[in-house]
Design a protein around this nucleic acid. Structure first.
Lengths: 209, 209
DNA sequence: ACTTTTGCACTGACCAGTCAGTTCAAAACG
DNA sequence: CGTTTTGAACTGACTGGTCAGTGCAAAAGT
């Protein structure tokens, strides 16, 4: 019997197969795009028969949607964890933002292909998985917005900041800097990149500092 | 005789047709991606026969590559103009960055579809137009890097900033904030968005200011 | 026993690119 | 003038290939 998407009760074997398919799909789709990637390619790279893909996922699009949910789930959890850890350690809200920047970089360092694919799809319209994407995007951005709002409430940030826009800008800053890092100067260390972004966040660009 | 790509000596009629094809292609590809967009669709939206596409462009990929060059050319010119205008008016380097942020926003406001498509393709590997994209990207980023370097030389920016990374981060900030603006809160004014980004650039996030 | 995977042949839709033929404005001609 | 010719620009039916998705019997795994 065919089982639907978010099934925790899948056998270990089945879960392993799905994982292999995710990994194969993510790199191929990141490189080539969704439409240019064939199901045969995905199956081959995963070392699995084509029929297995269809035994595990209703269609190519569904495989992709679940991949999106899976990946953004990891990211959101990681961001939230960073914010909460800072909280526990008594850090300020700027510290929390900084910790989230690092968490974002670590994520992109670990899953560059997923990030790539996510960015490529995020602002598209008229696609099957559009609604999935919106939901999932909101989960991630909401974590950043939450910290900004708490910072404003605590008087640490100006009341005049535009929370959604600032959140988007921060996300963009990390996203683009990290993708450039991975694509064009992969030899740099994560700490280097983090330092540059930290500086920008804290307005330590101007001045001789 | 068939004429090649960057031909200034094209007839007015031909140039008009190519323009229509660019406009049709840019929105369709932004919405659906390159592979999911068919040449028939492009031709239909441009109000032209399929053969005409192939009379004007060697292939679907070539059409897309020239579209990329065309669009990034516009952006680069606009950024450079903003930087030079600030220079002439005796503004500081921060002013120049700010003017470029605005120029970027104006561009994205006018050509949201192009921006979308550009972002979706920028970090892909193994694609036909990869090299075109690199060249064209470098042109645009170089303008920002130039201003940053001049700012460092003039002692206005810290010598410790990482020019390429900071440039990428700034571009990302504008890109993502603007795409979010257009996609999710299109009713906001450009000035609003500009103000939020300006604030972030000048480190006026912290504090009650 | 039953779930999952395999292998592979098959179908039908879809699509990039081709090419023989049409259109028409402007040049050449009488 | 009016007529004929030229060729760039355009057209759209057609072709050859590709690919998502199916079907199913046998094997492997738990």
């Amino acid at each position: 019997m065919e089982r639907s998407s978010t099934t925790p009760g899948g056998s270990a074997r089945r879960e392993a197969t799905r994982q292999k398919l995710y990994e194969a799909a993510v790199t191929l789709i990141a490189e080539q795009g969704f439409s240019a990637t064939t199901v045969d390619e995905i199956a081959e790279r995963a070392g699995v028969a084509k029929g297995t893909v269809y035994y595990n996922f209703a269609s190519k699009s569904v495989l992709f949607e679940e991949l999106l949910r899976h990946g953004v789930g990891l990211l959101t959890a990681s961001l939230r964890e960073a914010a909460e850890r800072t909280e526990r350690e008594g850090g300020s809200k700027v510290d929390a933002l900084d910790a989230m920047i690092r968490a974002g970089l670590v994520f992109i360092d670990r899953y560059p292909a997923f990030t790539q694919l996510y960015v490529a799809e995020l602002w598209r319209t008229n696609r099957a998985w559009q609604s999935t994407l919106m939901v999932v995007r909101q989960q991630a951005v909401a974590v950043v917005e939450g910290v900004l709002r708490e910072g404003v409430a605590a008087g640490e940030f100006s009341e005049e900041i535009d929370v959604p826009l600032t959140a988007a800008a921060l996300v963009g800053m990390v996203l683009v800097a990290a993708l450039d890092w991975k694509s064009f100067q992969p030899e740099r260390s994560l700490d280097d990149v983090h330092a540059a972004l930290s500086r920008l966040l804290q307005g330590r660009v101007s001045g001789r500092g």
